[in-house]
């Protein structure tokens, strides 16, 4: 844990507490707990979406943190929650559009030749994908017989 060693003892020790400061730190810790709850709920609701950043910069613990450091963690959590909400909102929009596209593709496969939509594209778990392909290969291509084929899932 090299970050432990990067801090000088002077930096690391919170100012000796008086009652008000301890109350402030307690309030900061309460806010951190509340924000951690929100981030936890977002994490569960985000599954199975990938490539979402969840890190919040640590303060080089395990230490008794000062009020300023607790504030930084609280703000980091709040910013992370806002970022994740934004990312999930964008993804939800794209996934809704992809679901609509999939419905149209299933209804009229010949209009969406060779198009492929995966579970990930519509925000679902698993490795299945829908693929618009010609029936009977070349013959289907020539006469315009297309269908949507659903793959069997994840490879073992």
């Amino acid at each position: 844990m090299p970050h432990l060693l990067e801090r000088s003892p002077i930096e690391a020790v919170p100012v000796q507490l008086d009652g008000d400061e301890r109350l402030a730190r307690n309030e900061m810790r309460r806010q951190i707990a509340r924000l951690e709850r929100e981030l936890t709920e977002l994490f569960a609701s985000a599954f199975p979406r990938k490539r979402i950043e969840w890190d919040v910069a640590p303060a080089g613990g395990p230490r008794l943190l000062g009020i300023g450091e607790l504030e930084e963690i609280r703000d980091g959590l709040a910013n992370r929650i806002a970022d994740v909400r934004g990312v999930l909102g964008d993804r939800a929009y794209v996934e809704t559009k992809n679901r609509e596209l999939l419905e149209r593709m299933i209804a009229e496969p010949e209009r969406f030749k060779w198009m492929r939509i995966s579970n990930e594209d519509i925000g679902e778990p698993g490795c299945q994908h829908w693929h618009s392909r010609p029936r009977w290969g070349l013959l289907g291509m020539l006469v315009g017989w297309w269908r949507v084929k659903l793959s069997s899932g994840c490879p073992l």
Binding site: A44, V56, P58, G61, P62, L65, L70
Partner: peptide, 27 residues
């Protein structure tokens, strides 16, 4: 694994990690 952190005890440790300057997604 996904829902573990929503359970009260794992969540309590996550909160404590934050409060002592550890990021529970790294440590």
């Amino acid at each position: 694994a996904v829902h573990m952190r929503e359970r009260p005890i794992p969540w309590a440790y996550r909160v404590f990690f934050r409060q002592i300057g550890l990021d529970p997604d790294r440590t």
